[in-house]
């Protein structure tokens, strides 16, 4: 294994292989961050919807989760990138006005956002359902509306309980961004493959990518652990130590 390959110029590109991987990493982080924001917001809404007393809302939420959970991620990328614009003429018109790179970025964020939101919704639901029934009833008893009960009683505790599975979800999301190579987004995995195929130094390229993915996933893990400690309620479940 010779590391000088990382300092060699990319044929007819700008910069070295090391810089090429670094630019891929930027895309990876950007997609992960924006998809996480989307997934967290959507996932929370759907998760809450599945625990309300409105039967139709619960059904709708269940359908949403099953839809996005049961289709392989690679297939979902293909659907969002090729099939959706092909089926809906107005989307196609809009897509052709977009810069192709922007289009890939938007597709990757939307696809990963929906996929991850279904998984977060499932965790938010289980977090709320793990709380004692009395908490909800206590909320109603002191005169809070359903919205207020969720906002001030149920969700603050539910989110604290589900921080560990949410951490795994965030780490999964970071690793899942690699699938965006399939729509040609030049993220880290795309650059790694490109480096392998153009220099035949697969071992070096993939060793570097492995290391980078481990480092960013671990960093996400540490950040979530920090948040978990900061928001812990003394004397209550996992947060206590």
């Amino acid at each position: 294994m010779k590391l000088d390959i990382f300092l060699q110029q990319v044929p007819d590109g700008d910069g070295t292989w090391w810089q090429s991987l670094a630019s891929g990493l930027q895309w990876t982080l950007l997609v992960a961050l924006l998809a996480w924001i989307m997934a967290f917001a959507l996932g929370s809404l759907v998760g809450v919807a599945r625990t309300t007393d409105k039967r139709w809302l619960t059904r709708l939420g269940d359908t949403y989760v099953e839809l996005f959970r049961n289709i392989p991620l690679l297939v979902q990328f293909f659907l969002w990138y090729f099939v959706v614009p092909g089926l809906i003429p107005s989307v196609k018109v809009w897509v052709t006005t977009l810069d192709p790179t922007q289009h890939q970025l938007v597709t990757a964020i939307v696809c990963l956002g929906f996929f991850t939101s279904a998984r977060i919704a499932e965790q938010v639901r289980s977090g709320i359902q793990s709380l004692a029934r009395g908490q909800r009833n206590a909320g109603y008893a002191v005169g809070l509306t359903q919205v207020q009960t969720y906002r001030f009683v149920l969700l603050p505790m539910a989110y604290r309980i589900i921080i560990p599975p949410l951490t795994s979800e965030l780490m999964n999301l970071i690793k899942n961004t690699a699938v965006a190579y399939s729509i040609g987004l030049t993220e880290l995995f795309f650059r790694t493959r490109e480096m392998g195929e153009m220099t035949f130094r697969y071992f070096e390229a993939f060793a570097a990518a492995t290391l980078i993915y481990i480092v960013i996933s671990m960093a996400a893990n540490r950040v979530m652990a920090f948040i978990e400690r900061r928001v812990a309620v003394p004397g209550y479940i996992a947060g206590s130590h």
Binding site: D12, F190, R193, E197, M198
Partner: peptide
């Protein structure tokens, strides 16, 4: 197609 020799070719043509 990513990973093919066409990629650096287009780039050098552009330059």
């Amino acid at each position: 197609t990513s990973g093919t020799t066409s990629v650096p070719l287009i780039k050098s043509y552009e330059k």
